[in-house]
């Protein structure tokens, strides 16, 4: 059996969906953040597969940008999570309910 474009897209989509599900059901902020990273990597696989299929470099370039953005986002995100943890001593999303209405 040969591996076709569909297999890669299926894999990417599956990873993306695992990320979405993880984001929606996890209660720990850290794990929610990791799920988002999983979503992005699922998309990256799709991009690379399409780029290879079309023989077009734009998709490959896009992946590099996504990875850079994800790194910047991780730096900022971890700093934010750390500040929150210092003030609140918890990472449970259900406990962050100071604001309601």
């Amino acid at each position: 059996m040969s591996v076709t474009l569909e297999h890669y897209i299926l894999l990417g989509t599956l990873l993306f969906l695992i990320g979405v599900t993880g984001f929606l059901i996890r209660k720990n902020i850290f794990l929610m953040f990791m799920s988002v990273e999983l979503m992005m990597n699922g998309v990256n696989i799709c991009f690379v597969a399409f780029a290879r299929y079309f023989g077009d470099m734009a998709g490959q370039a896009f992946v590099l940008f996504v990875m850079t953005v994800a790194a910047a986002e991780a730096a900022v995100g971890l700093a934010i999570i750390l500040t929150l943890y210092r003030n609140r001593d918890t990472l449970n999303a259900d406990e962050f309910n100071l604001m309601k209405g």
Binding site: F16, V20, I29, F33, I81, T83, F96
Partner: peptide, 23 residues
């Protein structure tokens, strides 16, 4: 802090969805 974390998580989640649309 709380505003920042909520904005960060939902913002990056939404750009993940946006990214899948682009792909």
């Amino acid at each position: 802090n709380e505003a920042s974390v909520k904005y960060f998580l939902l913002g990056s989640f939404s750009s993940g969805l946006f990214l899948y649309g682009i792909a």
